[in-house]
Amino acid sequence: MSTATAILTTKPTQLSIATNPTHDLLIQSSPDIPTPGPNECLIHVRATGICGSDVHFWKEGAIGDSVIEGECGLGHESAGVVVGLGEGAKGVEIGDRVALECGIPCSQPSCEPCRTGRYNACPRIVFFSSPPTNGTLRRYHVHPSAWLHKLPPSMSFEEGALLEPLSVALAGIERSNLRLGDPLVICGAGPIGMVSLLAAHAAGAAPVVITDVDENRLSMARRLVPRVRTVLVERGVESKIVAERIKEALGQEAKLVIECTGVESSIHAGIYASKFGGTVFIIGVGKSFQEIPFMYASFREIDIRFQFRYRETYPKAIMLVSEGLIDLKPLVTHRYSLEQAQEAFDAASTPAAKAVKVQLLDD
């Protein structure tokens, strides 16, 4: 009996998680298993993390110009096993354990971003879970074979799913030009802030401060990287005061701030904590329109930069984890089955749950 037949016989139904314009969380079951087309593979998705964007689409129905206008499947942080091959699928075989890179560019020679290697800027890119394209938070998912990354035997499906947020952090670290011994501030100790901390630690940033409004997350940050210095941000405190506390903890002004929340007040604190000629690198997703201390940044030549997803990061992420330079395992604090999706999303969206990364698993 083949691997594909064995798995499909055990779980012969499709199960998927979606939302809609009325903000329902839909747990949908179907007897129809998708069929891979040319150059595609059928994946039994074994682990999927809940991203802040998934919660945002569910709760708010939109992120910027990306709007939920009908039912749309969620999830894009996934790993699983290949259980079917379409005609022409290359690079993987049935039974391979893989991570899914979910931004699929057009890859046409006429596309300047694809041709020059900046495929995250492809105007025709298809990103799973970005409306109207369904996501990977489902039992069975069809994926292009070219955008699957084999996992080494030492890496779990949970770690494989965490390669996606790690990719976001690695892209930010690389574009921010972080160097050995650079004093660094990370604003926000959520999943992206945590993986940014792990990546910055591996890259040799020093000293490092991380901020958050939740002491539980700061405690986890100290467990992950004992040398990190933490600043608990009290809600409602003026950003300049927060910046002074950051600088005191860092022992100096920051050469680089990696902002992982997208919250306006946090961005302000990062700007006020920066040195002359410093950089505030914004990874977090926030309101579509925000105010910044324009003249303060201008008079101090502070560069404000942004990150849009990632490119060519998965092989590096796999190498860093498999070589032991980055340990992702402690980040998963809550685990649920697909059938428990409502509980999983409640935990991911409720601060009292004290979740860092919530994953849905399907054995």
Rank of each mutant, 00 (worst) to 15 (best):
G277W: 01
E301K: 04
I68E: 06
L256H: 09
C72M: 10
Q28H: 13
L232N: 12
C106G: 03
I258D: 00
L224G: 05
G49Y: 10
S30H: 04
G95M: 00
G193L: 01
V285R: 00
R305I: 05
L25W: 13
S78Y: 03
V209E: 09
L338V: 13
L180W: 14
M319K: 13
T48I: 12
E93I: 07
E60K: 13
S337W: 08
A189D: 05
V55M: 04
V92I: 15
S337H: 11
F345C: 11
A99F: 00
E71G: 13
S288C: 06
Q359E: 10
L328M: 09
G84P: 14
S129I: 05
R118V: 14
C114W: 07
V280F: 06
S349P: 02
E164A: 10
T3M: 03
L15S: 03
L218K: 02
I304G: 00
G286N: 13
L198T: 10
F128I: 02
I63T: 04
G73C: 09
A348T: 13
K316V: 12
Q307M: 11
I50H: 00
P351C: 05
E112K: 12
Y310N: 09
D65T: 11
Y310W: 15
G278Q: 13
D327L: 09
T19P: 05
G49K: 13
S337C: 06
D303V: 09
V358R: 03
E248Y: 02
A121K: 13
H44T: 02
C41Q: 01
A254H: 06
P153F: 04
V213A: 11
A352H: 01
G75C: 00
C41N: 01
Q340N: 10
D214N: 11
D54S: 00
S176L: 05
P226D: 00
S110A: 07
T3E: 06
P113I: 12
A243W: 05
F281M: 12
L137W: 00
A221W: 02
P113N: 07
V285M: 13
T261I: 14
S2F: 03
E101S: 04
R179Q: 14
R138K: 14
V280H: 03
Q290A: 04
P315C: 11
G37Q: 14
L42Y: 09
D303W: 01
P38V: 09
Q28Y: 08
E60P: 01
G188M: 05
I186V: 13
Q340R: 06
H76G: 07
G37L: 14
Q108E: 08
R335A: 07
A254P: 12
E248H: 06
L148E: 00
G172F: 08
Q290V: 15
